[in-house]
């Protein structure tokens, strides 16, 4: 019953998204919309090219994954395999507490603390950029990645570990060669869940990504990911106008992004579940 309700709601949301987004394609072609390099929705004539926004979303997600995966996976290994029980009992709730920090607080932290710090440390013109956004998103994805990975590690049968140790492997060898490979499907799920969190996160990127609708050429360039664009402009876009439709169409693209991520996660989980 619950499953039915959520599937129906999901279906209705999709229909609504598509219905509101589709009319834009009578003004621009799908190709122009996705590969267009200029996003000037309020100009006369307007330009609705979301390519810089897609690149923005993609680059921020990628960089935040690069930062958050090693951190998340390693802290999970530490908590599940290496730390003493007492320490793990403290560390685990702490990491999980990180997940409960509201995104607007993370964004504010990025804007007020991290941004000036980056400016001074790297001597860059502006601290509101791709790197800052990726860092903040990584900060938010680590708890997700860590706790899912930890569950995966804990579900590895004890017999495997004991077998390895009995054959003379050290504790670290056992972790690297036996436990982690055995848990790889769970870890992949963790990574993709972390990534899909980064793709859809709005408040943080709105506050710290800089908001310039261009394709970045360095990690210290400002970007404008899709959710930030939707959030910043939806309030002022006149209901039912072209701009409004364009924002919904951007939403459709974003939705497809996360859909692909989730399908991948399901695939990977299945493949390794031999």
């Amino acid at each position: 019953m619950t499953a039915f309700v959520s599937v129906t709601i999901l279906g209705l949301i999709m229909i609504f998204l598509i219905k509101e987004g589709l009319p834009i394609f009578s003004h621009v072609s799908v190709k122009e919309f996705i590969f267009g390099k200029f996003w000037y929705p309020t100009d006369d004539p307007p330009a609705y090219g979301i390519f810089p926004l897609i690149v923005g979303t993609f680059s921020v997600t990628l960089l935040s994954t690069v930062i958050s995966v090693p951190l998340g996976v390693m802290s999970a290994i530490y908590i599940a395999e290496i730390a003493r029980e007492r320490l793990a009992a403290i560390a685990k709730p702490m990491v999980e507490l990180l997940a409960s920090i509201p995104s607007v607080v993370v964004g504010f932290f990025g804007m007020v603390v991290v941004s000036p710090f980056l400016q001074d440390t790297f001597d860059i013109p502006s601290g509101l950029n791709l790197f800052n956004a990726a860092l903040m998103l990584a900060f938010m994805a680590v708890p997700t990645i860590c706790s899912v990975t930890e569950d995966a590690l804990r579900s590895v049968p004890k017999s495997l570990r004991e077998g390895s140790l009995a054959l003379g492997a050290t504790h670290l060898e056992t972790i690297a060669r036996i436990t982690v490979p055995a848990a790889v499907s769970g870890i992949s799920t963790a990574v993709i869940l972390g990534m899909s969190r980064a793709v859809g996160e709005t408040m943080v990127v709105l506050m710290v990504a800089g908001g310039a609708a261009m394709s970045p050429s360095s990690i210290f360039d400002p970007v404008r990911p899709m959710p930030a664009s939707i959030a910043a402009e939806m309030g002022e876009a006149p209901f039912g106008a072209e701009h409004y439709n364009a924002l919904f169409a951007t939403g459709v693209v974003l939705f497809l992004f996360t859909l692909v991520f989730n399908v991948c996660a399901a695939r990977i989980a299945r493949r390794y579940k031999r």
């Binding site: 908001g211 310039a212 360039d221 400002p222 910043a232």
Partner: peptide, 8 residues
């Protein structure tokens, strides 16, 4: 310029 940062 598209390189301009924007503030809501």
């Amino acid at each position: 310029t598209p390189a301009a940062l924007t503030q809501p």
